[in-house]
């Protein structure tokens, strides 16, 4: 596991004193809680922590974990255990844009070092660090599950794929200007179709026996 903003168990940063779901999040939480029988409410802990993180600038203060624990009738330590187990829960404040650079083998083979280097050059921060203006946090993550379009970076809820150094810098520039870059492949290919364009099924299908069969079947 790489060093990330989520590592480290002991809470050291400034922690808010209290936390509660806003009306909108409370409604969502109730909907999630409703999926489980009352004595199994604890099952809702991960989705609720996720909601809490979303509401609270993408990180989970201790107060939010306590709030979720009390809400679900769990011992607080049981919630700390869950929250610290998953690296996707941030136990410390992160920048407005959380940049998760995948450095697992396929992405690494396709140049994730260059992508990480671009972040370092453009933002002046290494993995696990946040820019002083609080805009960007860069972390290394293990396989993001989009190897076909490696190297890949997750920023917030979106994936940006087929990156290289300049493309990464361009993305960061756009984000810094407050724009919302288009997610997906940055080389313009659609989904995960071959980078050089379609390589198979390039001609029109022949009138097929299947079509005949289909008409025949109707008879």
């Amino acid at each position: 596991m790489s060093a990330s903003a989520s590592d480290g168990a002991v809470v050291a940063v400034h922690q808010p004193d209290s936390f509660a779901f806003s009306a909108e999040y409370a409604a969502a939480a109730e909907q999630i809680e409703g999926r489980y029988p009352p004595e199994k409410r604890a099952s809702a802990v991960i989705p609720l922590l996720h909601l809490a993180q979303r509401q609270h600038a993408n990180w989970l203060p201790k107060a939010a974990m306590d709030y979720v624990a009390d809400r679900l009738g769990m011992a607080r330590i049981r919630v700390y255990e869950v929250a610290t187990f998953y690296t996707m829960f941030n136990k410390e404040p992160v920048g407005k844009h959380l940049i998760q650079v995948c450095t697992t083998t396929p992405c690494w083979l396709r140049g994730s070092d260059e992508v990480l280097g671009a972040c370092k050059r453009r933002l002046g921060i290494g993995p696990g660090e946040t820019t002083p203006d609080g805009q960007f946090t860069v972390v290394e993550v293990e396989c993001a599950g989009a190897c076909v379009n490696a190297p890949v970076v997750a920023i917030g809820d979106d994936y940006y794929e087929d990156l290289d150094g300049p493309a990464m810098v361009a993305l960061l520039d756009q984000l810094a200007r407050g724009e919302s870059p288009t997610p997906g492949s940055q080389t313009g290919r659609r989904g995960s179709c071959p980078a050089t364009g379609p390589t198979t099924l390039t001609n029109q299908p022949l009138p097929s026996a299947a079509a005949d069969l289909a008409t025949g079947a109707d008879d």
Binding site: M1, D7, A9, V11, R76, I77, E81, T84, F85, T87
Partner: peptide, 25 residues
């Protein structure tokens, strides 16, 4: 949890970083 009836200890973190702790010292 089972004998003393106070759920204060837990295993936080994961893998080699796992620690048995009260989390809030």
């Amino acid at each position: 949890e089972e004998i003393a009836g106070v759920s204060v200890l837990g295993a936080v973190g994961r893998g080699t970083h796992t620690e048995v702790t009260t989390y809030i010292d």
